[in-house]
């Protein structure tokens, strides 16, 4: 029996193997790493000492970019060959699709967006946010197979050393009828990534024009953080390539400053893991104030410049 770990981000294998060890302690077996795509294959060295017994690397041409049907084939082959009972992946949109595909193929219980995971006498018990992040559900896997998608940051990365046996694989994808014709990567913002930043400055529809995002950027740069927006600013106005929230990026900074954001559940579900939240809103009734540690009632066009001015002075000594 084995436990299979797959991540679409090379830096998350460390966290996932910590979850894998929990399963190994509980159920025995070996922990196998799965890597798909040539780009990632180059980085196998980075994960070879985390404690995997084997790492399977699938790097056929049709696997270089995400094709759910082709990726499923690699996953299915690995699961069949090594009698995999538990599949652990990072929670992402791509993996939601992959996990749904594989769970129905192998008839496994599936839980996505896992924010807490424990084994209780052989029972797999997970927590995950539901209802747009307003509630927390406790779920339990029935049956003897599980596919779990774990949110980043739930487990601490704990490498254990060792050297994994690396097994190179190719697969025949000639029967895959889904064709990827184009991939346009997201414009990568310079600097720190939203989901990795210690400080995030967020702006919502209280920001009247695109140029005014400069205030967010300036504040972010003073504090050494990243800036982000709510969904309408990105999806409707096109001012940014991604947004914070349930259908976008989840953040977990030490400090999140939300300016001109009303605080709808779809947004706040993506900021729940922030340590301290500051809200700036001119409407004293805005729901975001219930979600904030410090709320400033006021016009962001006055508050942000003042905050920038004072912080600049402090930082300059």
């Amino acid at each position: 029996m084995s436990i299979l770990i797959y991540s679409d981000k090379i830096n998350l294998y460390g966290e996932l193997i910590s979850a894998g060890k929990l399963f190994k302690e509980g159920f025995g077996g070996e922990i196998i790493g799965l890597v798909i795509g040539a780009n990632n294959a180059d980085q196998v060295n980075n994960i070879a000492d985390l404690g995997f017994s084997k790492i399977l690397v699938y790097s056929s041409e049709g696997l270089n970019n995400y094709n759910p049907v082709a990726y499923l084939k690699a996953l299915q082959e690995a699961i069949g060959e090594f009698n995999v009972k538990y599949v652990l992946m990072n929670s992402s949109y791509k993996n939601k699709i992959l996990s749904g595909l594989i769970a129905s193929k192998i008839n496994a219980g599936l839980i996505v967006d896992v924010s807490k995971l424990e084994l209780d006498n052989g029972k797999i018990i997970a927590e995950r946010p539901v209802y747009s992040g307003k509630a927390l559900a406790k779920e339990e896997v029935k049956g003897d197979k599980a596919v779990l998608l774990i949110k980043p940051g739930v487990f601490k990365a704990r490498g254990e050393g060792g050297t994994a046996e690396v097994i190179q694989r190719t697969i025949d994808l000639s029967d895959i009828t889904l064709e990827l014709t184009e991939f346009v990567p997201k414009a990568v913002e310079e600097g720190i990534k939203l989901d990795e930043a210690d400080v995030v400055i967020g702006g919502g529809r209280g920001i009247r024009k695109k140029e005014d995002l400069e205030m967010l950027k300036e504040l972010a740069s003073i504090l050494g953080g990243a800036w982000g927006v709510t969904r309408p600013l990105a999806a409707d106005y096109g001012w940014a390539s991604e947004w914070i929230g349930i259908s976008g990026v989840s953040i977990r900074p030490k400090l999140y400053i939300a300016a001109g954001i009303s605080g709808q559940p779809q947004h706040t579900s993506g900021i729940r893991e922030s340590k301290i939240i500051v809200a700036i809103n001119k409407d004293s009734e805005a729901p975001i104030f219930k979600f904030a540690d410090y709320g400033v009632i006021g016009d962001l066009y006055q508050v942000l410049p003042k905050l920038i001015e004072k912080l600049k002075k402090i930082k300059e000594g």
């Binding site: 729940r272 979600f291 006055q302």
Partner: peptide
Amino acid sequence: SDLVITTDVKAYEEKRKQVILDASDP
């Protein structure tokens, strides 16, 4: 039969400090 059962759903308690500072008067 369901392979995952939900045993409990609870609304989060918002445990934020909610300290309000009023700057509506410039």
